[in-house]
Each structure stands twice: as C-alpha cells, then as structure tokens.
Design a binder for these strands. Structure first.
Lengths: 137, 137
DNA sequence: CTTGACTCCGTACTTGGGTACAGGGTGTAA
DNA sequence: TTACACCCTGTACCCAAGTACGGAGTCAAG
C-alpha cells in the first residue's frame, strides 16, 4: 500500500499528526474521525485533511476539552438537518465557555506575574500568591 | 465533631469546595493538600484556607492542567531551600505555557465568531470552519 | 514466490483521576 | 445509654482515553 497524493494510510495519518496508530482507530470508533473509504484489501484511505483534524483534537484536549466536547465543536457547521440559527446558538455558547477559560488563565498569569515581581525584591510575599489572586468567588 | 471558627472537617471542606469527600482524601494522598493536623480522635482539622486551594485545583483542571502540573503551580513560592531566582524562572515558564493556551483559545474563538458571522448570511461556508482557522502549523 | 514491512480486527491491558464500600470508632442530643 | 450522624482506614471498583497484542491477510522488492 502506497500513499498517494490525496490519500494516506492510518499509520501515515498517525505519524503526521503525532499520535499513536491505535489512537486513530480509537478516534474513528468514537466518531471523532469519519469512517474512511477503504482500499480493495480493506485498508483505510484517509484524506490528508484529517491530519489537521487530529491535531485540532489534541490541541483542544490540552485546553481541557473532553473528547465529547470536541466532537460537539467539530460538529458545528451547517449540514442538512440543522438550521443556521441552531448552529449559531451553539457556537455562541462555545464562545462564552471559551471566554471564561481565557479569563481564568489571565488571572493565573497575573498571579504569576505578581509573583515574579515580588520575589526578586524579596521580603514578605504571601505564602502562595497564586492562590491569593485566583480568589474569584 | 464541630467546625470551629478556624478549623473544618474534611466533609465540610468537601462541601464548601464542591467536591466529593473522597476527593479530599485523594488529594491529600497525592500531596495536593497538606497533611492536616488531627483531633484527639484522629479527625482531620483543615484550615478554611484549603477551600480556596481545592477550588483552584478544580479550575486548573478545567483548563487542561494535570494534577502533577497543578502541584507544581502550587509549589511556586519562596520557601526555605529555593532561591527566588529559581522560583522566578519556573514562574516565567508557566506564564509562557499559559500564554500559549490563551492564544489557542483566542484562535478557536475567532473561528467560532467567523462561523456565526457567515452562517446567518448563509451561502457557501467551509465544511468545518473551526478547522480552517486553527491551522496553526 | 518468499520475506519483511505493513494492514486488518477483536480483545485485553493501562493510567489518571476519582468513587464507593465495609467495618469500625466518635460525639451528642434525647 | 442509646440512636444517629459523622469520622477513620483500607481496599476495591469505576470511567475516559488511550495502548498493546495476537492471529491473520496484503504488498512489493529481491
């Protein structure tokens, strides 16, 4: 089996998106990757575009999204059976979720910045400044 | 066992920080919570300050930090045996990590915003716009 | 026409992060 | 002084997200 210009094997997809081969099969089972067409011998024929998809999944995971949430994100598009108003609503909800994450990260960053600022001047800094400043609610 | 002004039981800590009681024990085992002093009967006597700590752990988890990473974050402070230059360096590394997360979240948000913008106008939008715009390398 | 690298499938194992008991000891209000 | 709610420990179980493995088929270079 050779990779052609527009079609790659599962192990090639795994390599290019820097995940384990088994992970590809797993994502397919979980519906995160579309069931790919098969060669005459039954080999999976992935499109190169899936590389981007797998990388997206990995990135999103690092940001605390579960595979289930990622599936929802990837499903956000207008397809037969969904109205664009519906997609719009779901997308807006996601935007708000993400905004919250950003705000929390910013607070953490600020805390750490204050830490670096105070700790070089030494003297009395709080026991654990990062806790001090993430005191939201 | 009664909770006093400055000392609470493990189940009270669990309740106030909105986690399962067993999670408190688990965090203690993992070194995410300090081993608390005990009452004569062996009951844990947590300080109220630990509520904030547990909440911080939960928030950080939602942002994709593992318990191991969270432990490192919580350890960022000047203590006997660490120089402030050392703390500074580790804090700066964390700040950079976080900045990356923020950037990725911003890209996702932008993608979603474009989605809501284009989908109400309907017409030809890309198959899955969120993938398009998170095309970072 | 064989050999070595690849693919398939199903199933079993692993790791992180919890959760749920069981069996026993407290604390206190009635 | 008992009833009931609470705490302790240890151990076993659970789910998500992979990862590994065995047995069998496929492909292409020598």
């Amino acid at each position: 089996m050779k990779n052609t210009a527009d079609s790659i094997t599962s192990s090639e997809l795994a390599k290019r998106s820097a995940v384990n081969l088994e992970t590809i099969r797993y994502y397919e089972r979980q519906g995160l990757l579309p069931k790919p067409p098969r060669s005459a011998a039954g080999y999976r024929l992935f499109s190169l575009a899936e590389v981007r998809r797998v990388r997206f999944i990995k990135r999103a995971q690092e940001l605390g999204f579960s595979l289930k949430e990622i599936k929802e994100l990837l499903a956000l598009r207008v397809t037969p059976g969904t109205t664009s108003a519906d997609v719009r609503k779901r997308a807006e909800a996601k935007i708000a979720d993400i905004e919250e994450k950003v705000q929390t990260l910013r607070a953490m960053q600020q805390a750490l910045t204050r830490l670096t600022a105070t700790c070089c001047g030494d003297g009395a800094i709080s026991e654990c400044p990062i806790l001090e400043s993430l005191n939201v609610e």
